[in-house]
Design a protein around this nucleic acid. Sequence first.
DNA 1: CGCCGGATTGAAGGTACTCAATCCGTGTGG
DNA 2: CCACACGGATTGAGTACCTTCAATCCGGCG
Lengths: 239, 239
Amino acid sequence: MQRSVSPLRLKAVCSNCNLRELCLPVDLSVGEMQQMDDICHLKRGYARGDYLYRSGDKFLSLHAIRSGSFKTQVLHEDGREQVTGFQMAGEIIGLDAICTDHHTCDAVALESSEVCELPFDKLEMLSRKLPSLQRHLHKIMSREIVRDQGIMLLLGSMRAEERLAAFLFNLSQRFAARGYSSTQFQLRMSRQEIGSYLGLKLETVSRTFSQFQGSGLISVKARSVELLDLPGLHAMFSS
Amino acid sequence: MQRSVSPLRLKAVCSNCNLRELCLPVDLSVGEMQQMDDICHLKRGYARGDYLYRSGDKFLSLHAIRSGSFKTQVLHEDGREQVTGFQMAGEIIGLDAICTDHHTCDAVALESSEVCELPFDKLEMLSRKLPSLQRHLHKIMSREIVRDQGIMLLLGSMRAEERLAAFLFNLSQRFAARGYSSTQFQLRMSRQEIGSYLGLKLETVSRTFSQFQGSGLISVKARSVELLDLPGLHAMFSS
DNA sequence: CGCCGGATTGAAGGTACTCAATCCGTGTGG
DNA sequence: CCACACGGATTGAGTACCTTCAATCCGGCG
C-alpha cells in the first residue's frame, strides 16, 4: 500500500491530499482547486501502531490517507473490541466523529503512513461555496453508509468462508484500483484483526485460509497472499 | 409508533416534516425555518407493506418519517436479504442513495405511515445558505455511520441473547424519546424480520424471547412486549 | 368453522468457538 | 554463528451455540 498515486490523478483532485476518495466526478476549476489545496496543507507521518486518533478525542479534522493504511476499531464498554474497517491510501477517515464532535473509534496505523489533515470547519465553509465539493462530501459519507451496510450483510448472513472470500475479493479490488496487482499482495493486518473485522476468531480465519489453499483458490503464506482463482473466489460469496 | 410528536417539537424544527432527527442543536430563525418548510411540503401516506422506494430506484429525495415506521433491507444477488434497519417517526431515510444517485436498498412500511419528501438538490441548495442546516445534515449522516458501526459490533461479537437484549433496549430508548412508554410497546416487525436484522434465525429469536420471559426479564406475547427489568436487560449486553 | 400465516417448541445436526499444542519467522543475546 | 525467546500462525480435539427440520400452537379473517 506504499506506492503513491499517479500524478494525473493527483492533479485531478487535490494536489496535496491524494484525495482518491474525493475522485468521483469532482470537477473543480484551477482556482477552486487552489482553495481546496489551501485548507488541506498539513501533513503528518505515522509509524505502525501509532494512533491517528482515539475514541473520545475531540473532533476537528477529517483525515485523507496519502499513503499507507489504517484500521479503525470500536471499543465496547466491557472491553470487547471490534475492527470496523481497514482504510487505504486515498480514503477519508473520521466521518463517524461529526455527529458528536468526538471520535467514536480508534484509528491505528497498520504500517508507516502519511495523512493529510482536513479541518472540518474549513471544509464545510468551502463546500458552501463550491456545490460540486459539497455534493462530494455527501457522496463520501453516503458511500461509507453503504459500505457499512455491506458489512452488516456479511456479518449477518454469511458463513466463515463466504466472509473471508468477500474480504479477499474486496481487498483485491481496492489494490487494483490503486494500480497494484489484484492477485498478489501483502496483508497489512493480523489474523486476529481480520477475524475481528469479519466476526470470526483468528483460528477460524487461519483454518479458512488453509482450506482455500487446499482447494486451490489461493496461495497463502503468513501475510503474503496470492489469489489463484478470482472468479472462484467471487462465486464463493455471490452465488 | 402512531402518535405524532408534540407541537412544541414540531415548531422547533420543521412544522411540515416532523424532523425529529434534525432536532439536535438546529437553530434556525423564523425566516430560515420558513425556507426549510418551503422545500419539504410534499407529504405522502403508505400502508403496511408499501414500498417507499426500491433498490435501484433513481434517487431524488430523502424522506422524513412523520408517523409510522419502516424497515430497510438490502438484497443480495443470490436472493439472500437482510434488514439493515428499522426507522421510526422523526428519522431520515434514504441517505444510502446519495453516493450513486440510486437507492441501494428497499424501504417498506411496517404499518400505516406518513412521510415528508425532502428534495435533495433543494436541501443542498438551502444548506449552502444556512450553515447550521449544513452542519445538521452532516451530523445526521455521521450518526447513521455510527449507528451502523454499532450494529457491526453487535453482529460481529455478540451472542444471540446479547443481540436481542440490545435490540429491545434500543427500541425502548427510541420509544421513550418519542414520548411513549419505554417498557410496554408493540413490535411492528415479525420474528423473521428481527432475526434478519440481528443475524439470527426466527426460531432463535423466538426461543430467546421465551428464555427472557422465563428469567423474568420481559413479558412477551406475540408482538406485545413488556420490559420488566430494564437494568437487567442492559446488563445483558453491556457487562 | 376452518384456514392461514406467524409464533412457539422440540430434537438432531453443523459450524464456529475454546483450549491447547506445535510450528515458523524474526529478532536478540550469548 | 547459533541458540533461544517471542509473537503470530497453524493445526487438532472437544464443545457450545445456533441452525435446521419438523410438529404444534395461536389468533385473525373469510
